[in-house]
Nucleic acid binder design. Sequence first.
DNA 1: GTGAAAGCGCTAACAC
DNA 2: GTGTTAGCGCTTTCAC
Lengths: 334, 334
Amino acid sequence: MATIYDVAQLAAVSPATVSRVINERGNVDPEMARRVQEAVRALNYRPNVVARNLRRQTAAVWTAIISDINNPHFTSLTRGVEDVAQESGHSVMLCNADEDLAKERRYVDVALAERAAGVIISPASYRNSTVAPLLERGVPVVTIDRTLQASPVNAVVVENAAAAERATAHLLEAGYRRIACITGPMRTTTSTQRLAGYRRALRAAGLPRDPELECVADMKEGGGYEATRALLQHDRPPDALFVGNGLMTIGALRCLNEARVTVPDQIGVVGFDEHRWATLVRPALTTVAQPTYELGRAAAKMLLEATGPDAPPPRTVTLPTRLVIRDSSVRPAR
Amino acid sequence: MATIYDVAQLAAVSPATVSRVINERGNVDPEMARRVQEAVRALNYRPNVVARNLRRQTAAVWTAIISDINNPHFTSLTRGVEDVAQESGHSVMLCNADEDLAKERRYVDVALAERAAGVIISPASYRNSTVAPLLERGVPVVTIDRTLQASPVNAVVVENAAAAERATAHLLEAGYRRIACITGPMRTTTSTQRLAGYRRALRAAGLPRDPELECVADMKEGGGYEATRALLQHDRPPDALFVGNGLMTIGALRCLNEARVTVPDQIGVVGFDEHRWATLVRPALTTVAQPTYELGRAAAKMLLEATGPDAPPPRTVTLPTRLVIRDSSVRPAR
DNA sequence: GTGAAAGCGCTAACAC
DNA sequence: GTGTTAGCGCTTTCAC
């Protein structure tokens, strides 16, 4: 592959001048610039960014460490990150950590080794110290979808507690009384906050909370299925379900289907995360819609801000959600 | 950040020895190795892979240029790629080309500039020459999900034509006679092959093909919706739909829903791509299931093979599909 | 405005 | 088995 020296030789200038032309830095005589352009084209020259990065001591690459790339919530968010990256001349290295701290740690190592210009991460645990090596070395970090407990890190999240409270209150208004809550593991802030919102709504309604109705599952379809099955087998099964994410909602609906429990008649359902198929299922599903794409964009913009010498102090941006009421949570009049 | 020289100094050895220990190459005295390990830990040293790549003239990074990261088909396939990458010590740079040739070209440039060790791509067009610069420079390329017309490139695909033929034949057997076909743009081999399979099934059944029933849409939800609406407005609307991908199927179902056209009674539906929600919609959806994850794994393994001096000549691997018959394509007895 | 030359951090000949 | 050293391709002072 052609190097900058080949171009310089062909254009009869010095490599320094070629570099200036390519990077549009400093003043170059127009005639010389023209010759360089021509040589670049003739040789089909592409600057070696590996060499450039070594010299510049930084790469225009962001690392995105995402919990589960099979979850549409996260892919949509990733698109937001990617679009901002492209606008600002960055590439994104997408890593799927699979809610696994060991994998997460490995990817942080990769980001460090590649000298990534920044890292966007949805941490598997808020007690997490995996980002510490990044912070120590001054690599800008933004957490997305979730926050970290102790570290002073930029974050973009949604109003999880308020959204959960609203969803639960909606079920209460619809006349449901024994509302179960299926959340993800308590190591993520999304889960703890959604559970807290659920509890707050019960308390506000003067209802006791029943630990048997609070289920922790794995944030995947199978977990939602199992949790629902367990709930249905209780002595006093719930009359409504608030499910903490989209994948688990699918599992829950599948279980209800198989058990021939009718929605919204016998059991009301509200699920976190909006889906394209929400209007296609019967009954149409009531959801908590998150601005996923915007979540990604906001995180990427924050990373942009956090880069450079005069970065503002870390802050948390909270985006609103929307309760989309459909048929699964509205009990028909008897 | 600590360099290899810092480590060497602390361990009282030469940088070459440190390099040997880190890369586990050549023989090193155990005692020295121990001292190096210790120094590495003490300094919290991480090898600078940018420098390493410059020196080695290759990076352990693959670039995956994917058509639409919002399409679950492609995210699932990406997971397959990623898992093999991790097993083989590669990182994956995921790029979303959005079915846009210009974007695709840009990402090929990035892959070239970053000196990627290999590229996996689902090309936006089979007439595509975007990969030519890669081939010229000897960068291993594998196309996934789709093939290229002229270039001798490794490919992993599914048996599109056969699958489409089987799906259409199934609709015919179920008693449907005016079957419409909604495919993606004719620039992708998936679309042309699926259309060809559909036609073959009609021909085999001795039915004429009606150009009015062959719709080209954009592979997204909106396209499926619009195509279906147009079909319903014909003088002689179809009595069945074969839809060429999952996103368009959602659009088609939404349109049928809104138009109060009942499935499978008034119209039968088979959609390409399997979804978690296929059993949740009413009626449950008949689909053509693809081994998406395996598609990704196979492509990545092929890339692994294609790397190195004694790479086998390019070939195309075709994976099987499965017709999953549910309720949307089975007309109830009258 | 332009060129010469040093050096980013690493690896791989090569010499010992 | 270990160390010395050159050089990967680029950018960036620093002379001119």
